[in-house]
Each structure stands twice: as C-alpha cells, then as structure tokens.
Design a protein around this nucleic acid. Sequence first.
RNA 1: GGCCCCAUCGUCUAGUGGCCCAGGACACUUGGUUUUCAUCCAAGUAAUCGAGGGUUCGAAUCCCUCUGGGGUCACCA
Length: 465
Amino acid sequence: MIRTRIPPSPTGEDLHIGNLYSAYINWTFARKHNGKFIVRIEDTDRTRLVEGAENQILSTLRAYNIAPDETIDIGGPYAPYRQSDRLDIYKKHAEDLIVSGHAYFCICTKERLDSVRSEMQAKKLVPRYDKYCLARQDQVKREIDSGANYVIRLNIPADTEVVFTDMIRGEIAINTNNLDDQVLMKSDGFPTYHLAVVVDDHLMKISHVIRAEEWISSTPKHVLLYQAFGWDLPFFAHLPILRNPDKSKLSKRKNPVWASWYLEQGFLPEAVLNYLALMGWSHPDGKEIFDAEEFTSVFTLERIQPVGPVFDITKLEWMNGQYIMKLKNDNLRDKIQELYKENKLDLNILNLSIPLVRERMKKLSDYWNIAGMLFEPPTTYEKELGDQKELLEKVTQTLEAISEWKADVIGEKLQDLATAEKVPFSTFFMTLRIALSGKKITPPLNESMEILGKEECIARIKNAA
RNA sequence: GGCCCCAUCGUCUAGUGGCCCAGGACACUUGGUUUUCAUCCAAGUAAUCGAGGGUUCGAAUCCCUCUGGGGUCACCA
C-alpha cells in the first residue's frame, strides 16, 4: 500500500506554494498507485505557532482540489494527525531510545552550548555538541529529578557513513562526523521535527517520504533513528526546491509565496497545478497542458529532475490564459462573479461580456480592466477629443437612426458613415472607442455598443464631445 | 567555511554514446488576419550543452578536476 504525506507546520499565514507543489506530487503519486495521501499537522514549535494557520492550510489545499484521505478533521486509521495531540507517543519513543542507549539526557544551558559551538567554529570544526552530558548521565538524572530543565539528544556514533537511496538522485552518503547530536525532545516536552517525523511516518505507515531537497542533509539523522528503533526505512525522494529568479530558495521577500494569493489573483487552481507539474518534470510526450487526471496517469518520480527550477510567473500567466479560454461561458462567468462578489456586477452585462473577454484575460482579475467600460462610463479620456465634435455629432445621428440595435448592424452603419466622411476605419473607430470608454484598448466595439444599449452609447458620446 | 545536491537558449525543459554544429514551450522580434487590444497563423533571434582534461572510431550524454549556483549546519520546520 502506497501512503504519502505532507507535514505542513502552521507557522505562516497560509500554505506555501512550495508545499503546494510537494502536496501535488505526493497526492498524485498516491492516487496513481491507489494509495492514500495524508496531511499531518506538525505543530511542535510552540513559539512560532500562528493562530488559524492550520485551517487556512487545509482550506487552501482543498481549494486546489487536493483532498487529503486522512487528516485532522476527517480522521483516519492512524489518528490523531496533529502532532501536539501525540505527545505521549513521542515521549514513550524517546524513552525507549534512552533505554536502548541511542539517546541521552542533556541539561546543558544555552550559554554553554553557544560557547562550545563558537569554540569549535574558531577551530574550523563542524559546530557540534560535545556530548558532555552523555558521560555523566547519573548526575544529570539526579539533577533532572530535582527539577532541572532537560532535553533528550540522539547519540550519534562517530565516524560512520550513513547511506540512503534517494529515488531522484540515487545513493547519498554522509559521514556522521558532520552531524550534531540532534535534540529529540525539547525542554517544553515537545518533540523536535526529527523525532516526530520519523515516529509518525513509521506509525502512519508512510511508504514514500517525498519532500523538498532542503531535507537531504537531515535525512541521515532520520535514517539513524529508524535504525535505532529497528524499523524499515521508507523510500525517500527529495524534490527540487522552487527558486526565485535569482536562484535562491523561493521566498516571500522576492515572490508571492502563499498558495491562496494565486487564487485571489484569479489564477485557476488547475492552471497553477499544471504549471507546478512542469517544475522539474516534463510530460513524456512533451505536452505542456494537461490536467490532474492525465498527470496521474503518466507521472513517475524517476522522471523528476534534480535541478532547482525558477518559478516563472509569466509562463504561469500564459498557462492560466489557456485554461480560461477553455472554460465554458457559464463556468467563466461564475468564477468572475465569485472574484468580484463585493462589487455585485450586473449579471446581465456580465453574461453578455463573457465571449468578449475570454481571449483577453490572463487572470480572472484582469476582468475589470478589460470590461469595466461596460459597467460604468469613463471619467477620464486617454486622448483629447475636442477636435472631433463634428464627427461625433454625425455618429450620434447615425446611431439614433438605427432601429435594430445589433452589433453587426451598428458596425455596418458606422462603416458607411466613416466611408462617407472619408475617415479611415482605424482612426474613426479609435475616436469612437475613446468617446465610449475613455480608453485606447477595449473589447470589440460593436459588441460592446450592443451591450451598452443605444441610449447609453449616445449619452456617452455627447458627454465626450 | 565543513558537508550534501546540482549545472542544456533569459526562463521551464527534451535529450541517457552516433538520428543533435541540440528539439519543444514561455518571453522577445517580425509578418499575416483584424476596427484597438487579445486570439489565431507564419517566420525569426536565442544554448560552441559552465570550463578544462580524459575514455571512445564517435560525448550534451561516461570519468576526473576546476568553476559557478543552491541547500544545510538551532531546544525551527
């Protein structure tokens, strides 16, 4: 049984786009193999905890149609799925490790740890804990009994090659001399990530640990933990890290990173996911546009490239435009309406405008910029029309004479007028466009005029001239 | 700095020893369609495959060194 997971930690305001990427890969891989996709909340850092983040993360994930099979609010066979609800489990496992000699108590102060580290750094050594407490466990335990704060550390053996296989990169070996005696249990009684992730992944029967590349260097600690517990290793696959244009790890200072931001901007979930699928992975047939269904059928972990891709919002916008063009009218209308629900757009105009805007939008939020003229008259004009009074007067007369207010009829009559007046179409219609919208760029004029209605058009032209 | 990962057009990538003096997509440029914009169509610019050594009849593809980029070195995940 394939079981995958993402372990978001509720320490930010929302799901990070990198986590969404990881989620999509994990979800897809699980579905491909008829497995389960688990979302486990890793809230062991009490100092960085953000209120409400947990719900936000889950709802964003669901907004992208990535539904967990097991998580905090739906439960599952290995509940609970929130680490703060599993404290007893970690405590017990940490104690097991103490008994087996793989871990030990430590009561060193922050000051001592700092000085040990800076001393080693000065000697150009890897800054590590010096195992001071390990040699005096009896005394340490006595001090703990009389109330001393303590942590539990992993007792990492010296000079040992830890080797594991990464499904994307192959074999990776790291010598334990580069590893610190990792704290497993913090003095507040909470486990650190390293203990919790190993214990939970094992207990929750996670078969494939698919996570970002930044975890590679701590994987040896996890491997050592699995071995200390006598457990089988899961498969590991480390995904490339999404990058800023300057190649550094995607960060909110340089890029929008919250997954819901893209939704708020009017990116479609399917488009964002499709774009994400192309990060480090390519369709075997070279296809660029494909949905989750197809991704699931052709996806393989082995095809993921280990190179860190730059997250290019320009290409995302193009792709989003492709998805918008494929939307059915009603569907597109509903999405626009949802985005502008505060403004309560006139439903009739909205409906009529859809065919006019669909090919012009890259994002749903482009709508107002393109179609705003259909809802309200211009207040400013991008071009002065003072010298066009006469022509506009004639336009008004022509429009007034039209009995059947249809785009093609309007267009025909206006072209006749332009011809009679010996004004080139491009000049003529640009003048009219400005008069009606104030803008040089608008949806097709005839259709827009039909939507606006005869009276509104005439009123706007009189106003402009 | 130590350790680890990585290296093909500006960006995302194809490519796993000969079909590649490197293909596609985005972006960009030009032309066509068009009543603006967009769509659509056509064409073009753009990588001496990071550099240097090997291996081989033959290397983007294998090996080594260097360089560059990234990640990581917490009682954060």
